[in-house]
Simulated assay, not measured.
Amino acid sequence: MCGRCRSWILPAAASCSMTRVHGWRRRRRVSDPGVTEQLRAAAALLLQPPDERTSSILQSASGERLDPGEARQDFYDTFCIPRSGRYIPPYRHVMLGARELRDYWYFPPPRYNGGDGLVSWYETIGFDVSRLNADVLLTGPNRPLDHLGYLLAFLSTVARSTDENSELFELGSTFAEEFLSEWPRRYVSLLSRANSVYLHLVADALNEALDRVNEYFPPQAIKNVEDMQGETSGVVAD
């Protein structure tokens, strides 16, 4: 999300309920509530149609004229209805198989078990996608678990709980590296090409949320190199 849109993060985030994490005891490091709220708000944009209040906030923050009815239709056509002619599937396993041919994108059909590899990750912290506040068209027992909104909501929950267990930083970094590498940027790029002010604002929000993920949950390889460099510097200094 461009800086001009940040004023709507809190209202948008408040509308996306999350699963609480249980069982973490140690308190080592304080989490950044701004990251939690931003990821939750970005997830909400993919899981819920904009109501008049959200549209008004987006319009005021961005300076763009936004018609609430058109914004809602854009949401359903782009995120929910495969046969709309405008559908861009927000699923990792679909986007990994997407192909561009002569300026057209071709997407394989979503598989109900396409995100089953995420079950163990979600269970680690008791994350339950059925408890998220999502539109009825995006809920149900056979929905793939690798929806981008779910992935961002999961990391929002992890970020909120890092003050209870700093080891969750490593979990979040590993998760982001495995499931949010490259394909979300392609997805955002496709949204930004749509003929829709609303989708452009959603693309901005997702881009900035992904930037925050990279900052807050850096890849483990980079983190390990930095740790090694710190240890080496300490030896030299002594």
Rank of each mutant, 00 (worst) to 15 (best):
V236T: 09
R111H: 10
L171N: 03
Y104T: 10
S120F: 06
R193V: 03
A43S: 15
R26A: 09
L155P: 06
V202A: 12
A61F: 08
S55L: 02
P90G: 12
E37C: 07
A43K: 08
G140Q: 07
G126M: 11
R4S: 14
A44T: 04
E231G: 04
P89A: 13
G23Y: 01
E64L: 13
L191N: 04
F79E: 01
T36S: 12
E70N: 07
W24G: 01
V136C: 04
C80V: 15
Y198F: 15
L46N: 08
L168V: 06
L10G: 05
E123K: 13
N142I: 02
R20C: 05
L206Q: 02
L45E: 08
Y76P: 03
Q48I: 06
D211T: 10
D238A: 09
W105L: 13
A237P: 03
T157F: 00
W105E: 11
C80P: 12
D103Y: 10
V158C: 05
N113C: 12
A159S: 15
L39R: 01
L10A: 13
P141L: 08
I9S: 00
R25A: 07
V197A: 14
E177V: 00
L132K: 07
A71M: 10
S84E: 11
R212K: 14
S192D: 14
R40E: 03
E231S: 11
R99T: 14
T139Y: 01
D211I: 07
P184C: 03
W121H: 13
S192G: 04
P49A: 12
P33A: 05
E52R: 13
T174W: 05
R83N: 09
R53I: 13
V213E: 12
S31E: 08
T139P: 01
D128N: 12
V136T: 09
Y198D: 01
L151H: 04
T78P: 03
A42H: 04
S31T: 06
A61T: 14
D146G: 07
R25N: 07
L118K: 02
K223G: 07
L47H: 00
R25C: 05
A44K: 08
S31I: 01
P82Y: 06
G234K: 00
E177M: 01
R86T: 07
D163Q: 07
R29M: 10
L171F: 15
W24Y: 09
D238E: 12
S60P: 01
Y87W: 11
H22K: 09
P89V: 10
V21Q: 00
P90C: 10
E178I: 08
T139H: 04
V235C: 02
R86E: 13
R20E: 11
L45G: 11
C2Y: 10
P141R: 12
I88L: 15
S196T: 02
A176E: 08
I81V: 15
S192F: 12
N113H: 09
H93E: 03
F75R: 02
Y87F: 15
S120T: 11
I57T: 04
G63W: 10
E170R: 11
T162K: 02
R40N: 14
D67C: 13
C2A: 11
W105G: 08
A14P: 01
L46T: 07
T174R: 14
K223H: 13
A205G: 00
P218C: 05
D77N: 14
L45K: 02
